[in-house]
């Protein structure tokens, strides 16, 4: 097997590229889980929705408005998609999830599973399951960068960079600012925080909106790399669940690092034994459950 350092490094870089998606998505799940105590099954579908906002904004919005030459450009999509999906999230939280707060947490999982089926079903009905290509990638991000050991697409460098900024930015806000301290306090003891005059229900709603907004942001980033398809989210979410089980949802930094690390491990597996690369994360999950059942950064649910 020709396993030069160069092959390994380039696969690990490509793996890191997947890893940032795992990181953003599991980060969103962790933030939502922290405050709402639910596993947001619809996260994958909203990631897919984000990608479709970019795709449709670029292809369809212009003709729809009667101006065929209008395209919602990539940078605008990066802003619009999280807002649209975040607003949808606020709606979901206010009309549905809120009613389930006093029941078993499993109901939250089931409800969001149903929502995921609805969203995915609607898109499967209108779009090709094998996917559509997104043509809105900005000129400035096309081409390659010479990393010394390999030529790496400029766009992927951008994705890795901006994702790390978003992830660590979120970590900073939650762990190091006053706003974040409210959130963390709300996670620990919502009743007490309420007694201090903080509007906890609003905080919960906005947190959910923010969490799913992150998923939509990841969806836009993914649009130019992967083909945009109705099933892109459901394929992603199961892997992300495994990532979350490995890392544990108790820690923001934990979920970011686990996501990045597992992406790289997956990339490395492609070099060593390609057929296993699809399952390696699940196998790692098995090992973690055997060795450290609470997860790498875990505290129990």
């Amino acid at each position: 097997m020709g396993m030069s350092l160069q092959t390994v490094l380039s696969q690990v870089m490509l793996g890191l590229n997947n890893g940032v998606f795992y990181a953003i998505l599991s980060l969103g799940l962790a933030v939502i889980f922290g405050l709402l105590n639910i596993v947001n099954f619809v996260h994958g579908a909203l990631y897919m929705l984000g990608a479709y906002v970019a795709l449709l904004g670029f292809n369809q919005l212009g003709p729809l408005l009667g101006r065929p030459d209008f395209h919602l450009n990539y940078w605008a999509a990066l802003l619009v998609a999280p807002l649209v999906v975040g607003a949808l999230g606020v709606l979901i939280e206010k009309t549905m999830l809120r009613r389930l707060r006093k029941f078993d947490h499993l109901y939250g999982l089931l409800l969001t599973f149903g929502l995921a089926l609805i969203i995915q079903g609607v898109f499967t009905n209108y779009f090709n399951v094998s996917g559509d290509a997104y043509d809105g990638k900005p000129e400035v991000l096309s081409g390659v960068v010479d990393l010394g050991f390999m030529l790496f697409p400029k766009y992927r460098v951008w994705v890795i960079g901006i994702s790390l900024v978003v992830c660590f930015g979120t970590w900073f806000v939650i762990e190091r600012t006053k706003l974040g301290s409210y959130l963390r306090a709300g996670t620990e003891n919502p009743e007490l925080v309420k007694a201090f005059g903080i509007n906890v229900p609003l905080m919960i709603t906005l947190t959910y909106g923010f969490g799913v907004g992150l998923a939509a942001f990841a969806g836009v980033l993914a649009a130019p790399i992967y083909s945009v398809s109705p099933v892109m989210g459901s394929e992603m979410i199961i892997t992300v669940f495994a990532v979350v089980v490995i890392g544990g949802m108790g820690s923001i930094m934990g979920s970011i690092l686990t996501g990045l690390l597992l992406g790289m491990v997956e990339g490395f597996t492609k070099v060593v034994y390609a057929p296993a690369s699809g399952t390696v994360i699940f196998l790692i999950m098995v090992v973690v459950l055997l060795v450290k059942p609470a997860g790498l950064f875990g505290k129990e649910a």
């Binding site: 947490h105 999982l109 199961i238 699940f282 196998l283 999950m285 098995v286 459950l289 055997l290 129990e300």
Partner: peptide, 27 residues
Amino acid sequence: LAIRRQGIYFAMVTLALAQIVYFLALK
């Protein structure tokens, strides 16, 4: 494996393990 975790994690573990079976059925 799954009973090593509780509640919501239990559901996610079973889902992920079932995915391995899916891969095997495919391959």
